[in-house]
Every structure is written in structure tokens, then in C-alpha cells.
């Protein structure tokens, strides 16, 4: 089972590596941006369409 911490887009928090941000590049019809969502390092990423193994 893939975990968030195994993904390229996962950036752990130094003080608490069990938590981190999932950072993704988005290009919508008007603008481009980076978005971040808090996730747990050991969260199940098996249903995540954005998962990219490190």
C-alpha cells in the first residue's frame, strides 16, 4: 500500500516528520499555482490519482 511519505509531492515538517504537506502544481484555465494540503506521512495514498513515487 503506497503511503503519502513515499510520494514526491510529500514535504515533511521538520519538527514533526509524521506530518507534512502534499504540494501540487495546478494549471487551471486562468492561472497557475502551487497548492498545499496537510497530510499524514503514513496516510494511505492508494486511491490518490496524484501519487508519484519518490
Amino acid at each position: 500500500m503506497p503511503l503519502c511519505k513515499e510520494c514526491k509531492k510529500f514535504f515533511p515538517i521538520k519538527e514533526d516528520p509524521n506530518k507534512g504537506d502534499c504540494v501540487q502544481r495546478v494549471v487551471d484555465p486562468r492561472q497557475a499555482y502551487y497548492k498545499a494540503k496537510p497530510v499524514g506521512a503514513d496516510m494511505d495514498a492508494s486511491s490518490c490519482s496524484s501519487f508519484e513515487k519518490k
Binding site: V26, D28, R30, Q31, A32, Y33, Y34, K35, A36, K37, P38
Partner: peptide, 22 residues
């Protein structure tokens, strides 16, 4: 603490009331 945040290309100021620009 939990919401999605974003930074738009070229922006110098950040924060939005929702999760994504649209």
C-alpha cells in the same frame, strides 16, 4: 490548520477565503 492553501505564479501577496482560486 487543515484547509488547502495556494500561491499563484507571480503573486507577492497570498491568502484566500476558499481552497482554490475558482
Amino acid at each position: 490548520d487543515s484547509k488547502t492553501i495556494f500561491i499563484t505564479d507571480h503573486a507577492q501577496l497570498v491568502s484566500y477565503v476558499g481552497s482554490l482560486p475558482n
